[in-house]
């Protein structure tokens, strides 16, 4: 097979391609037009682009083909859509870019966009955000739902997009660059707590898949695998990918938040009692 066919989408989705082009386009234009002092450094730009391109890569290249027909590749795809990609995007702190575009929006449009803000704030309630984060993983991996999602093209796209959007919401909540000492961003203690809490159910689910004797996800058996591989091996690898890397990412996330908390320690001593209350 020629190399180009590995880069072309297996299941072309114009909406997906358009979304990614818009995101990268808006990001690029903002970089060029925004004032020098607000512009993210090259490290952050690379991190952002890498995060976006990783997500694009698993959705619109040959990788997607293997994700549809191998359970463990599918778990790898969700690891990127729900964890790694959004983590990179959130860590790159695209806030200045978002502020730049927000200022361009006219007040009347902003008024109509208000409901989006309400939904956003509701979804970013710590309890809702973490239940949603873990809940979506469990929902799409619930065997009957998983079976339908892999059979129906429409459900498959809904699954992947819901994982990506939820990943972005959750990791933005965790890595929000605004300090909780002076803004209403979530407190560092709570962020660490959330990271630890969401790791546990993911580890349980992954371990359950790994140690299941029977076939939990027979859809890959029913629909044929991308290449002949023993079903037990496929399931074992998929279970490990559900179990270990997400747990590691939670720990890395905790370390990053801890480091930030330690850096800020004593930086805003006076305002703590005032602003700390709504953190």
């Amino acid at each position: 097979m020629p190399v180009s066919s590995y880069l072309l989408p297996y299941d072309f989705s114009p909406l997906t391609l358009l979304s990614y082009m818009l995101v990268l386009g808006f990001y690029g234009v903002a970089l060029l037009k925004m004032p020098e002092q607000d512009r993210p450094g090259s490290g952050r730009i690379i991190t952002f682009t890498l995060g976006v391109m990783l997500c694009y890569g698993v959705m619109q290249t040959r990788f997607d083909y293997y994700s549809q027909y191998m359970f463990f590749v599918h778990r790898g795809q969700h690891l990127i859509l729900h964890h790694l990609g959004p983590i990179l995007i959130a860590l790159s702190n695209p806030l200045p870019v978002m502020r730049f575009w927000y200022q361009k929006i006219s007040p009347s449009v902003r008024y109509w966009l208000q409901p989006l803000g309400w939904i956003y704030r509701l979804l970013q309630q710590p309890v809702i955000a973490s239940v949603l984060f873990v809940g979506l993983i469990y929902f799409w991996l619930w065997p009957p739902i998983h079976f339908d999602a892999m059979l129906s093209r429409q459900l498959y796209w809904i699954m992947n997009w819901s994982m990506l959007l939820d990943g972005l919401l959750f990791w933005w909540l965790i890595f929000d660059p605004r300090s909780p000492a002076i803004t209403s961003a979530l407190g560092y203690g709570k962020r660490i707590l959330l990271l630890a809490l969401v790791a546990i159910p993911q580890m349980i689910l992954g371990a359950w898949i790994v140690f299941s004797r029977g076939m939990v996800y027979d859809v890959y058996e029913v629909c044929g695998r991308a290449w002949p591989m023993p079903p037990e091996t496929d399931q074992l690898l998929g279970g490990l990918l559900t179990w270990i890397p997400p747990a590691m990412m939670s720990i890395i996330g905790i370390l990053i938040v801890l480091r930030r908390a330690m850096h800020e320690d004593g930086k805003f001593p006076k305002s703590r009692s005032l602003a700390g209350g709504n953190a």
Binding site: Y69, M150, L151, V222, G224, R225, A226, W227, P228, M229
Partner: peptide
Amino acid sequence: KRYRTTFGYDEPDASGNYNVSHSS
């Protein structure tokens, strides 16, 4: 692809026989 299934070929053995993975 239309029916969300696939198939794949194993490496042929010495006598040219190979296994094919397909929907069951």
